[in-house]
Design a protein around this nucleic acid. Sequence first.
DNA 1: GAGGCGTGGTG
DNA 2: TCACCAAGCCT
Length: 297
Amino acid sequence: MTRPAPLPVADLAQLHDKLLDWFARTARDLPWRRNASPWAVMVSEFMLQQTPVSRVLPVYKAWVQRWPTPAALAAESPGEAVRAWGRLGYPRRALRLHAAATAIVDRHGGEVPSSLEDLLALPGVGAYTAAAVSSFAFGGREAVLDTNVRRVFARVVRGEQFPPDSVTSAERDLASGLLPVRDAHRWAAATMELGALICTARSPRCDACPVADLCRWRAAGYPAYDGPVRRGQAWHGTDRQCRGRLMAVLREAPGPVPKSALDAAWADAVQRERALDGLVADGLVDPLPDDTYSLPR
DNA sequence: GAGGCGTGGTG
DNA sequence: TCACCAAGCCT
């Protein structure tokens, strides 16, 4: 695998200046960017994992109003967190955010920790979220590698349409090497914003791109992605769809539901039982002694 | 490391 | 229409 030549220092300086300037002029006014507390930033990052901004906005606002601190969330049942998660998807995130709040109260006196190590030790916090909270909540200088940043760097620096399937050490090294000495947290937000709004996966708006003149993918004539075929996520008829139906029944009920209510949500009994067992194993559903089911208490 | 895990907007 | 895609994490 040949590596692209490193970006000349002059080009790197231009990249920094142009992108930071573009971001300063055009950044979206998102609530978690408006002097939000570290906890609010963490809530937004959990919600934004694999979920678009537009769908996160209303749920985020309700959450930070209802649970303005880790202690406030930790004082509730995990089931309330799952219910308030609504239709954001991946409800295990709600469970993990609740567990993270509890850990923050237990281990950090109720204050979101600022070190990468402490953040990574929290449930539901991986490499991306730890770096994002460090950067956006505390102004830390960390390489923030999300799907947007990876695509931007693949194109602008490596000259390729898409990054590899999973994060490589080469990508981490590249991202670290590109970090500006100052304003690294703005750089992180700017590269994410460029990927989200301009350098998009399907139809990039190169005419509006502030660094189009530096982009190696553009200079190379937009060569098509040359790598393994990426598998789409199956959905119709899968256990995931079934789990979603069962969770919807539980979310919408005010309390425990009879087994019959779950049975009515999915026809295939074998698959339904398997999915329900999985939800119980995940801690998303509590089977009660009277043969009813509820969100975890 | 590959696969499982929700949901809805979009080209 | 219907795959594809979206600020990943965990096992």
